[in-house]
Write a protein that binds this DNA or RNA. Structure first.
Length: 975
RNA sequence: GCCGAGGUGGCGGAAUGGCAGACGCGCGGGUCUCAAAAACCCGUCUUUAGCAAUAAGGGUGAGGGUUCGACUCCCUCCCUCGGCACCA
């Protein structure tokens, strides 16, 4: 099986050779050192480039490429990550060759729960495990030929890194953005720590899958909510996948609405509700307070006291899960109080129910069952009236004809009334155009059977009662008249009117039910002076009116909550705060950073922070600050470490600043960021928050860190399931690299499909790429021996087309189709007995270089040596390097001309233009014939004549009605 | 329930209004070989007719629409995946 032993192409030998050379010659390094002027080496010597592509540095010319900070887990880099790193690297290599100043770096998100949990299990210090994992990751990254600048490598668990994580915390603290408060938090009883909302997935701990419970605790928070508005709006500034922008916006959950005051009958108290649908206020038939709302206790009547207390008590005991289980089954208790609707003075009952959350809005809502699903369910359960106040703008006044046997369909048709449906009993549902309303009322008045009533629903709901004596009563439905209508209706319908409430009666009619929920773009009905207005306009007018009366104000609310950042764990950056003897908080002085994480800690979880028990940690605190002083013992959420790492890459050894103003200006913001979609509502949000805080504090002059962002898809197992130990379908890139080579692994990862799609791994597919590279190697070696002066025209043309296609694919991250293009070229080349000229071979190697860095370097050096026109110096240097590599004497300062610092080939415009084309001939849009090898730019007459000749039998002797000619592509003859 | 992405051969996928299935895998046949592997060559959406070259028809989740022409644009529905989930 070992393909590596197949004749000719030995990837292990080739790849390990070039890895060594690149590393020793610091091909992709040194930039940082130069920037810091720590190295006197002449940059020409250090980073030799071909021709004059080494453009001076400018902001337009820089390209900061950022692969997502990996979490170095014990099981190593997996295929899913690899795809992101490979894609970044291909882009970086491509950009570098087009003359951009590229910065690509790597680091380690080294703190965190899994390492600590593993440490607990094995009783080995997390630092040891983590450093081992990092060493492993480093090897994996290197084996995939990722061209990062290793001088910039950082690890978040190193004091010179977390010093600045702590600095960021202090910056937040000084700016009033870090604070402590007690509130209900997500608690994982297995990890024994608090979790951020973002770390709770499906109500479970994202790390260990334990059900998360709610617990009241005092915790550190960052006031990210202060930035909610900007975080939401500034998403306009970035080029991210649209769906991710939407997802982050939804997470922030900005919604515009109003706070509206409802006074409480018989008291001077009032309830402030928050709602986005003030337009539906005429439909409010109850108020709901969250059980946690303190107002509940104040307003509850003596009679309801016991019941309400019991309910509050019961709901406080409910876990989050129990509340969810009752999703469909609403619970609640009447408080005995009534609120007064400020728009129509309607008195409506005040309830308390746990479907209203205290943590959002004001902890109180107005219940509008006609236009809100939850209110509808609640009203249904507790028999609360339902008033329809928004109608779809396209629906005419409607009615339902009963007791109207004397009215024929003809009668209705005559006055323009449309029958939209019939019930089983033959009753008719009708639509009444506005202009027919009067005629319709007349018809009803005349022909309705005495003892029946009819109601129609339009801008207002109108009831027409025909008494047994033939007299007619017309009543519009308003809060004032509804009682009267109820009375009449029960008199008329008797037992049939068993709801005893006209609103309920209306809602039970099914066409009414269908429009009961949200209808944003509807027309207000049954809404007094606002009837007839559009929903959005009506909403504005209603709020404005209430505002003028001091009863409402426009408000914006967010779903986003403040970020909980303290963790009762060991393996994280200590929070740089100290408590004095009274328990008051003081920040650690910046010059005393970092607060070192001690190594002498028993990290077994007890629910108390392990640092509580470290003597070393508190050592010297009392001496420095005073008796009774002690350090904060919680550590920071690891997401704080990863919220700013891209700044540290720019200046990783700076011990005065997190990064110098000069390098920040030079490199930021990030031009190209690839990472997983799982970070949209976590890391990406936090990083944007950090950046905005830095901006406000004057450290930077931009307020979005990642201008361009794309997600790599997930690599699934061969069985189409998520790669996981559980399914035994995990593929380790290191195995693939060993067996098939880094070039093959890279190219296959791209070849599998579009970058952003989820794709199953197929080891059989790898073979195809491997064959391609082996074939290329064999072909190229044969070709070099031949040293052709000129490539055959067809190859020359195809080569130029390939350059064009690959260039555009690289710009657009469509690496999958590039790989296909390379294969097509090699297929064609293989068929050509004459082979390629060395010059063209070199060009082909160059465009393949970002994809397959090893094999192209190997072949490029061979071509260089063989090229008759290459200068002796280059040739000598190349051979010298090769020799030094083989005898192991290569030193850092040695250099060679690498393919990876060559300039990207340009294609010849003239050559990519086809001289002949195939023209498709369609008859009635159906393909019939293809005219091969036609001259480019043929006129219609010419083509039409030939086409008609060729498809004669399909024309059936008919004369064409129409001929569509698309130049150089297609002709369609319509008969 | 709501929001988002997607549905194309046996499989991964290509084609963003103009020749559907590029490229690769798999499969079938062949060359080489004592044999096998490797390598290379030919074929491979499907139905019907034909010994065959070939010819005619159908086909991109389903149905409708726009267009000379639709995998591609519009509407309705179905299915899969991801996210959110009492956020008023």
């Amino acid at each position: 099986m070992p393909v590596s032993s197949e004749k000719g192409y030995d990837h292990q030998k080739i790849e390990s050779k070039w890895r060594k050379v690149w590393e020793k010659s610091k091909l992709f390094q040194g930039q940082y050192l130069q920037e810091q002027e720590l190295d006197e080496v002449n940059s020409e010597n250090q980073r030799p480039r071909s021709e004059d592509r080494d453009l001076p540095f400018s902001h337009e010319n820089k390209c900061y490429i950022l692969p997502q900070l990996p979490y170095p887990s014990g099981s190593g880099l997996h295929m899913g990550h690899s795809e992101g790193y490979v894609a970044c690297d291909m882009y970086a290599r491509y950009k570098r060759m087009t003359g951009k100043k590229v910065l690509q770096a790597i680091g380690w998100d080294a703190f965190g729960l899994p390492a600590e949990n593993y440490a607990i299990k094995t009783n080995v210090h997390p630092r040891i495990n983590t450093d081992n994992a990092i060493a492993n990751f480093r090897e994996q990254i290197k084996s995939l030929g990722i061209s990062v600048d290793w001088d910039r490598e950082v690890g978040s668990h190193n004091p010179d890194y977390y010093k600045w994580t702590q600095w960021f915390f202090l910056l937040m603290y000084k700016r009033g953005l870090a604070y402590r408060k007690e509130q209900s938090v997500n608690w994982c009883s297995s990890c024994k720590t608090v979790l951020a909302n973002e770390q709770v997935v499906d109500r479970k701990c994202e790390r260990c899958d334990t059900q998360v419970i709610q617990k009241n605790m005092e915790q550190w928070y960052l006031k990210i909510t202060k930035y909610a508005d900007r975080l939401s709006k500034d998403l306009d500034k970035v080029d991210w996948p649209e769906e991710s922008i939407i997802r982050q916006r939804d997470w922030i959950g900005r919604s515009e609405g109003a706070e509206i005051k409802f006074s409480i009958k018989g008291t001077s108290k009032s309830i402030k509700i928050f709602g986005t649908r003030a337009d539906t206020i005429f439909g409010a038939t109850f108020i709901v307070l969250s059980p946690e709302n303190p107002l509940v206790k104040e307003i509850t009547s003596a009679k309801q006291q016991k019941e309400v207390d019991a309910y509050i008590n019961q709901s406080s005991k409910k876990t989050e899960l129990e509340r969810i289980r009752q999703d469909k089954d609403k619970t609640g208790v009447f408080t005995g109080a009534y609120a007064v609707n400020p728009v129509n003075n309607r008195e409506i009952p005040v309830w308390t129910a746990d479907y209203v959350l205290m943590s959002y809005g004001t902890g109180a809502v107005m219940g509008v069952p006609s236009h809100d699903k939850r209110d509808f369910d609640f009203a249904g359960k507790f028999n609360i009236p339902i008033i329809h106040v928004v109608a779809r703008s396209d629906l005419l006044p409607r009615s339902f004809l009963m007791g109207a046997d004397d009215i024929t369909d003809e009668d209705l048709k005559k006055i323009g009334v449309k029958i939209s449906a019939r019930t089983k009993d033959g009753d008719r549902k009708i639509e009444i155009p506005e202009k027919s309303l009067q005629k319709y009322e007349k018809l009803i008045t005349e022909k309705l059977i005495p003892g029946y009533w009819n109601e129609y629903v339009g801008a207002e709901t109108v009831f027409i009662f025909k008494h047994k004596d033939g007299s007619v009563q017309r009543i519009e439905l308003t809060p004032e008249t509804e009682k009267k209508i109820d009375t009449l209706a029960s008199k008329f319908a008797g037992e049939n009117f068993n709801n005893g409430c006209v609103w309920k009666w209306l809602a039970d009619n099914d066409w009414y039910k269908n429009v009961i929920v949200h209808e944003e773009y509807g027309i207000l009905i049954n809404s007094g002076e606002f009837s007839g207005l559009g929903s959005i306009e009506g909403r504005k007018k209603i709020i404005e009116k209430l505002e003028s009366e001091g009863k409402a104000e426009f408000t914006v609310k967010y779903k986003l909550r403040d970020w909980s950042v303290s963790r009762q764990r060991f393996w994280g950056a200590p929070i740089p705060m100290v408590y004095d003897s009274k328990g008051d908080l003081h920040p650690v002085d910046e010059k005393d950073l970092p607060v070192i994480l001690p190594d002498d800690v028993d990290f077994k979880p007890t629910g108390q922070s392990p640092l509580t028990y470290s003597e070393k940690f508190q050592d010297g605190v009392e001496k420095k600050y005073g008796k009774g002083w002690h350090r904060e013992v919680d550590t920071l959420d690891t997401f704080m470490c990863s919220s700013w790492y891209y700044y540290r890459y720019l200046d990783p050894r700076n011990d005065k600043e997190f990064a110098s103003p000069e390098v920040l200006k030079r490199w930021m913001p990030v031009d190209f960021y690839i990472g997983g979609p799982e970070h949209v509502t976590g890391h990406l949000l936090y990083s944007r928050f950090f950046t905005k805080v830095l901006y406000d504090a004057g450290y930077i002059d931009f307020d979005e860190p990642f201008l361009f962002h794309r997600h790599q898809g997930m690599i699934l197992g061969a069985d189409n399931k998520k790669m996981s130990k559980r399914w035994g379908n995990v593929i380790n890139p290191i195995d693939v690299v060993k067996e098939y080579g880094g070039d093959t692994a890279r190219m296959y990862l791209m070849f599998m499909g579009p970058l952003t799609a989820d794709k199953p791994w197929n080891t059989n597919g790898v073979v195809g790429v491997r064959k391609f590279i082996a074939r290329l190697y064999k072909l190229a070696l044969g070709n070099i021996g031949k040293t052709k002066a000129q490539s055959p025209v067809n190859l020359k043309v195809l080569l130029n087309k390939t350059i064009k296609a690959v260039s555009s694919d690289c710009e657009n991250l469509k690496f999958n189709t590039s790989v296909a293009k390379f294969m097509e070229f090699v297929n064609e080349w293989e068929k050509s007995p004459k082979g390629l000229s060395l010059e063209d071979l070199e060009i082909f190697l160059k465009i393949l270089a970002p994809f397959a860095p090893y094999i192209t370097e190997e072949l490029f050096q061979k071509v260089k040596e063989a090229r008759v026109d290459s200068n002796a110096d280059v040739k000598n240097r190349s051979s010298a390097v090769n020799e030094k590599v083989s005898n192991g004497s290569l030193k850092g300062k040695d250099h060679f001309i690498s393919i990876h610092v060559q300039s990207w080939p340009e294609y010849d415009q003239a050559l990519v233009k086809d001289e002949t084309v195939d023209i498709a001939v369609q008859v009635n849009g159906k393909l019939r014939v293809v005219l091969r090898d036609h001259r480019v730019g043929s006129l219609q007459e010419e083509i039409e004549k030939e086409a008609k000749e060729q498809v004669k039998k399909h024309l059936d002797g008919k004369t064409p009605k129409k001929v569509i000619y698309i130049k150089d592509r297609l002709i369609n003859i319509v008969v």
